[in-house]
Amino acid sequence: MRPDEKTPMSCAPGTTLEIHLPRRLLSLMRLVLARGIAYQAPAGISVNEFLTKHLRLDADFIQNRIQTIFMNGQPVDDPEGTRIQAPSSLALSAAMPGLFGAAFRKDGQYRAMRRSWPADQPGPENSESDAMVPVTVKCFNQVAEAVGDDLLGRGVCMDAGDFLQFWNSQHTVLEPGCLGVWMDGTQINPEQVADRLCETTGSIVVKTHAPG
C-alpha cells in the first residue's frame, strides 16, 4: 500500500441499509461502486481468482471486458499471476480512450509509456496460509454498468462515511425517488438516511431492490 492509500476496510458491518427504488435510479446507485466496496480474501489469492470467486465474474468478462486494472494504484498486466498478499485496493475499468488508455491497458502494447514507476513494495506477507486480508474494490464505467446491479442486489459492504458522502451528493434525486428505505429491518423515511448514517461508524451493508 502507498502511504496515501486509504486502508482497505474489513467487512464487519453493524448496519444494513436496504433501499427500494425504481429501475431508472439503478444507474445512479451504481455510482457508489466507484467509492469502494469491501471484501475479505485469503492472502495469496490471484486477482483473477478473487474476481471469479468474490465478485462472481466469469473468465470471459475478466479477460475481455475488464481491460484496465489497478492494484494499489499500480497497473496490473497479468491478473492470473498477480497475487493479493496484503490489504489491497483493486480498481476495475473497461478499456479507456486516448494514449493514457493505451498506456495503462492490461498488457497493452503502449505500456512502455508508463515506465519508470518504482516497483511497488510488496506488503507484509501473512505467515498463516489461511489468513484473510481486506480488499477494497472500485468498479468504474462499463464494468459498474455490467456488474453493478447484481452486486448491489446481493448487498455490498462499504464504509459508512463513503456511503454518506455519496448519499449527500445525490440526495435531491434519491430521497424523493426511493420507494422505501429499511435500516436494520426497520423502515425509515429516506430523508432520515443522512442523519442516521451520521451516527454510524465503520462499515455498512447496502442492498438495493428494484421491482420489475
Binding site: 473497461a94 478499456a95 462499463q142
Partner: peptide, 23 residues
C-alpha cells in the same frame, strides 16, 4: 468498446476515475 460504448456513454470524462486511480 471505447468508441462504441465508453465514449458515447460517458464522454472523455470517463477518464477521471481511472487516471485518478493511477495516481
Amino acid at each position: 468498446s471505447v468508441t462504441g460504448q465508453g465514449l458515447p456513454a460517458y464522454g472523455t470524462n470517463v477518464l477521471t476515475n481511472v487516471v485518478n486511480e493511477a495516481g
